[in-house]
Write a protein that binds this DNA or RNA. Structure first.
Lengths: 210, 210
DNA sequence: ATAGATATGTTAATTATATCACTAAGGAGA
DNA sequence: TCTCCTTAGTGATATAATTAACATATCTAT
C-alpha cells in the first residue's frame, strides 16, 4: 500500500476545484485548463497541476482537462462517489443551519439523525428528520451506520457528546464547539471555530504592527 | 516598521491558546508553562514557545508564564483589546446562529447591524438589533463605522453583498458562502466553507487508498 | 552560597510545501 | 507532413514551517 503523504492544503484546494468545476460544467463548458482553474479559484496554475499530480494524470498535454471527467475524478478522490450517513447533535440555530444547508446533500452527506437535549425540541421535525433525545444517540446512530458526527452543542457538553458518537461507531467528527476535543487517533476530527476565524481577521487588519 | 512574516497557523494557534488560558484562569491557576499549554491544546511545547517568540518574551525562564498576563498579551496581539463593529448580512439560520453566538461578544465582536433581503425578516429583532433591508446596508454600515462584514447569504448574491460591504468601508470579511469572492488586496478575507470541512474528513477516512 | 531542577528563548536541523523551469505530448494550420 | 503553439506532468529549487537541541535564567533546598 502506497502511503504518499498528501498535504491537507491540497485536499482543501481539491474540494474548491471540484466546486468550481461544477459551476463550469453547469455553464456547458467542455474543456478547461490548469490556468483557467487557477484563475477561477485564485491559485497558481502550477499549484493546480501539482495537486492533481498526487493522484494521477487527468489531462491531455496541449489540450487541458475534460471538465466532467476531472470533476468526477476529484469527487472520487475526496470520497464523494458514495453517500455518507451523518448524525447531527444539537438542533440550535447552528444545527438547523447545517441541516438545511443544501450543499451537504448535493455532495452526498445525508443527515440521518438529529439529537438535542432540549425536551421542547425533541419530537419536532427538521426537514424530514425527527429530533431525538440524546439518550438515543448511541443506539440510533449505530443502527443508521452513521459514519460522521457533527457536534453543534455548547462547549460544556461537547466532549461527552463526542464520546457518545465514538461509542456509536462514527469514523469522523466535525466539531463546532470552541473546545479542544480528545479523540482516539483512528477518529478523524476537524474543528470549525467561528471566533478563531474572526480573530485571524482582526490580527491581519492590525498586523502592520509586526 | 518591521514586517516580520508570521504564519497564519501561528495566529490560529494563538487564538486557541488564549481560549485555553481563559479556561485555566477561570480555574484560578496563576502560573502555567509551554508544556501545560501544549498538553491542553494538543500541540508541542516548542511550538507554543515559537509562536509566542514572534511577538516578544512573555515568560520567566525556569518558571513559566503568568496566566492572566499571557492571556492579555495574546488578546492584544490578536487585536482584541478593543471592540470591533460587525455587520451581519443574512438572517437565515446561519446568521441567527452567528448573531446569538456568545463567543463573539465575549471576545469583543459587537454585531451592530443585521441585513436581510427577505421582507418578512426585515423589521424583526435579533437580540437587540433590528433586521434592516439590504438597500440600507451601505449607509447604515458606514454610519456604524463597521470594520468587519459577515457574509451569510446564498452563494448567488455573495459577491454583490461583498461589494456593498466594501463600499461601506469594512476592512475585513468573513464569508460563509461557498464561492470564491473577489476583493481588493487591502481587504482581509476569510472563507468558512462547511462542505469543504466535511470533505477533508471523508478524504481522510478513506485515505489509506493513497 | 551552591547545586540541582525546571522552563524559557533562540539557533540549528529537519521536514513540508509551493514555485519555477523544463520536457513531453497533442492540435491546428501552412 | 512539418512547424508552431499550447498545456500537462515533473524534477529541481526555493521558501516556509515545524521540530529538536541547547544555552540562559530563575527558583528551591541544603
Amino acid at each position: 500500500m502506497k502511503t504518499l503523504k498528501i498535504p491537507e492544503a491540497t485536499i482543501i484546494r481539491l474540494s474548491v476545484y471540484s466546486r468550481h468545476l461544477t459551476e463550469v460544467d453547469r455553464k456547458g463548458i467542455i474543456t478547461t485548463s490548469s490556468g483557467d482553474i487557477a484563475e477561477g479559484v485564485g491559485v497558481s496554475p502550477a499549484q493546480v497541476r501539482k495537486d492533481l499530480a498526487y493522484f494521477g494524470e487527468f489531462g491531455t498535454r496541449g489540450v487541458g482537462y475534460n471538465v466532467k471527467d476531472l470533476r468526477q475524478h476529484i469527487l472520487r478522490i475526496l470520497g464523494l462517489s458514495v453517500d455518507w450517513s451523518v448524525s447531527l447533535v444539537g438542533a440550535g440555530h447552528l444545527g438547523l443551519a447545517l441541516s438545511t444547508y443544501k450543499g451537504f446533500r448535493e455532495r452526498g452527506f445525508i443527515i440521518t439523525s438529529i439529537f438535542d437535549a432540549d425536551p421542547q425540541k425533541v419530537g419536532t421535525m427538521v426537514g424530514n428528520v425527527e429530533v431525538l433525545p440524546i439518550d438515543q444517540l448511541i443506539v440510533v446512530a449505530k443502527q443508521n451506520r452513521t459514519q460522521i458526527g457533527i457536534v453543534a452543542v455548547p462547549a460544556a457538553v461537547a466532549q461527552d457528546i463526542t464520546d457518545q458518537l465514538i461509542k456509536a461507531g462514527v469514523q469522523a467528527i466535525l466539531n463546532f464547539a470552541p473546545v479542544v476535543l480528545n479523540v482516539p487517533p483512528e477518529i478523524e476530527l476537524r474543528n470549525v471555530d467561528l471566533a478563531v476565524n474572526l480573530e485571524v481577521l482582526t490580527f491581519n487588519v492590525g498586523a502592520q504592527r509586526f
